[in-house]
Design a protein around this nucleic acid. Sequence first.
DNA 1: AAGTTCTTATTAC
DNA 2: CTAACGGTAATAAGAACTT
Length: 348
Amino acid sequence: MGKSRKILHMDMDYFFAQIEERENPQFKGNPLVVGADPKKGKGRGVVSTCNYEARKYGIKSGMPISRSYKLAPEAIFLPVNMSLYKKVSDSVFRVASKISPEMEKVSLDEAYIDITKKVKNYREAEGVGKKLKREILKKEKLTCSIGVSKNKMMAKIACELAKPDGIKVVPPGQVTGVIDGMDLETVPGIGPKTKKLLKEVLKKENPKIKDALSLSKEELMDLLGKRGGEFYHKFRGIDDSSVVEKRKAKSIGKEHTFQKDTRDSKEIIKVFKSLVGDVYRQAKDKRVKGITVVCRYEDFETHTKQISFETRMRSKELFYKKSVPLLLKFLMQSNKKLRLIGFRVMIK
DNA sequence: AAGTTCTTATTAC
DNA sequence: CTAACGGTAATAAGAACTT
């Protein structure tokens, strides 16, 4: 007893949209979409977050904004106000880190907290989770959901089950029962492509986690490489990854999608230089290992060109000199118009 | 043959 | 009718190139 870890996963409910509702209470009860400008259904971006009323229309995060507009033209569409969300996020994490400093931020609205040293059992862990929910609500007037279990994967799955505005504790003895009947994509790291491969190997239309238990570790590794070995354990509710407090960035980059696909090299270079300038601001004085230039053509085909070299990011000029020729190669290699360009520096 | 660099694919939020 | 699809970052795998 007391051998297992106690990991808590906190996820803010429909974060960006909930903040907008808080700022504009008249929006509550109406479908609300935060994301790109829909421009009468012609916008190019995607939905960042939407509230539950919007979800009733089939709108979801990551969906093209044009499609969400067709589903609910009467919805309220708001632009992303990132500096506000960042401020709220910092405040929420300040509250959360009082629970335990062993906290890993996953994004602006999600974190894992290792509370193994703070509680004796899962009953106490549930109390800690409820307290955190209360404190976030008091401080920021926002709700979140919380999952608690013996590892990060199970805490995240529990949190998913708790949404919205709930808490779910999955003690070790219940882990298998909880995940057995779930979809393969419930396992973090399994997306549409991996699911398809597993579906083929299992010869089943709608395989569940319990079906995947028939695959040996070797079979999974042959099919999916290193990740396959991890999935073998994850299917069994095992995840030994630790809660990591500070992950330092390994790269910093910026991308831009044009309003309209273009081959106008004047415009392309102008935008590109501003991307490099933005990256320079963020990566100033960092030790750089190399750069990557990205280009997406009008047909969505995406390519990268990369150069390795070590330097300290002191001026923009060297980076222009190294990267602009790579960008121009994309224009020379093909007659297609460009949809997106990007610049990234690898650091360390 | 080994080590490094470059490119693509996949995933997540 | 089909396609529609941002921005940022990590990680893995394999190809291509160097030493």
